[in-house]
Design a protein around this nucleic acid. Sequence first.
DNA 1: TTGTTAAGTGTAATAAAAACATTTCAAATA
DNA 2: TATTTGAAATGTTTTTATTACACTTAACAA
Lengths: 229, 229
Amino acid sequence: MVYKYDLEDKVLLAVDCIIFGFDEEDLKILLIKRDFEPQKGNWSLMGGFLQKKENLDQAANRILYHLTGINDIYLEQLYTFSEVDRDPAERTISTAYYALINAKDHENVLSSDFSAKWFSISDFPDLIFDHPEMIEKAMKRLRRRVSTKPIGFELLPEKFTMRQLQKLYEAILGTPLDKRNFINKINSLDILVKLDEKDMSSSRKGSYLYKFDTEKYQQKISEGFSFKL
Amino acid sequence: MVYKYDLEDKVLLAVDCIIFGFDEEDLKILLIKRDFEPQKGNWSLMGGFLQKKENLDQAANRILYHLTGINDIYLEQLYTFSEVDRDPAERTISTAYYALINAKDHENVLSSDFSAKWFSISDFPDLIFDHPEMIEKAMKRLRRRVSTKPIGFELLPEKFTMRQLQKLYEAILGTPLDKRNFINKINSLDILVKLDEKDMSSSRKGSYLYKFDTEKYQQKISEGFSFKL
DNA sequence: TTGTTAAGTGTAATAAAAACATTTCAAATA
DNA sequence: TATTTGAAATGTTTTTATTACACTTAACAA
C-alpha cells in the first residue's frame, strides 16, 4: 500500500442495508421513505455513514438499530459500490450489507415510529441512486448463500413448519420444489428438531413444528459436515 | 441513506490487490517490498488510494498497472476491510481485489524495474496490517469461483495442456484429482479447442495443446449453459 | 530392439437427484 | 355419528452424475 496520498482524496463512506424478510409466501425488503433532501420523498435502502470510531460491521448494525430498533440480526457484507457519480450531490462510496430478519417476530418493533415499509421483492417502488443494483446483487448472493449455509432460518420464526421452510426456499430460489424430495433432503441433514407441537392454522390436521438445532449444527460442522441443499 | 454527516468522518479508501499467478505446480502471489515508511522493508500486497475521479475497479487497474506494467487482467472485488486500527498510523479502509495473471506471458514485464516478487501461496513472508487475512479470503473466493466460472484459464498461457490445467485446479483446490475423470469432465463442458500442436517439453510423446474458446463459451452461456466443475 | 516416461483412453460401480401417488388425520358438516 | 373435506405425511423407482480404476500408445534414448 503506497503512502503518498492527497487529503483531497478522502471520501465519505456510506453503508446501505438490504433487509430481507419473509411473510407467508413472499420474500420482502424493507425500505424507507426519505424525509430529507436530496431525493426527499423517494424510497431508499436504509443507510448512514461510517463513523471514525467504528468498523463497517458495527456501522451496519448501528444503522439498522437506529432505523428499526432491531438488534442482533444476521448481517453480511455484500459489495462496495463506488461509481464516481452514483450520488450526484457528493462523492460517496457505499458498502452494501444485507440482513435477514424474522419479520413476524419484529412486527411491533417495526411499527409506526419508523417510516419503514415492507415491499415484495418482485414489486417495489423506484429507488434512489444505485440501490436497485444493490438489491439485485443481494438477491443473487442470498440465492447462492442459502444453499451452502443454513441462514434461511434467520427469516423464519423460531418454530416453523416444513411447508413454511419449503415456501421460503421456493421464494428465494424462484423455483417450485418437490415436497417429498425437499423434506427428505432436509431430514437427511439432521439439523432440525421436530417438536411435539403442531401449527393448526393452515389445515384441520395441523402440521408439526420444527426448530433449527444450532448446537447440533455447530457440532456437525466441527466434525467436517458441510450443509448443502 | 441519511445525509447528515460529519466531515470528520471522511476516510482514506485504499485498494489492495492480491495477485495470483501459476507456475508449473504452484499457485503464487505477487508481493512488493515497501521502500517507504511506515513498515519500510516489509512485504505487502500492492496497494494505493482511491482517487476522487475514479471508481474502485479503475483504481485497482491503475495500481496494478503502475506497479507491474500489466494491463487488462482479470480483477474482482473481494471485500472491504475496515477494522478501526487495521492501519496503526491512520484510519484507512481498504477494499481488496484479487487478480489473476498469466505469469509466464508477463515474466519480462515483471522484471527488475518493479520491486515485486512471486511467492508460493504456501510459503510467503510476514505481511503488514491485515494483508494475510486478505489473502486467505481471496484464496477462499478463488476456490469457490473456479468451479463455477472458467476463470482458471486466466492463470494459464493461451495454449496449455490438459495436465497443466489439472495441476492448476489441484493447486487451487488443494486436492489431487483423477486424471481421467478430470479430462472427461472438461471435455464434456465442450469449451476448449484441441490444437494440432503438441507441447514436447514434458514428455517424449508430447501432449496436445488446448485453447479456451471464448466465443463458444459465451454462446453456450447465452443458451443457458452453466459452467460447473 | 528394447527401455523409459508421460500421454491418452473407457467402463463399471456407487451415490445423488428427480419423478411420482396414496394414505392419514382432525375438524366441519350432513 | 357417518361422511366429507383439505392439507399433511410418507417411500420407491428411475435417471443422472460422480467416482474408482488399469492398460496401451507415442516418441525418443540407450
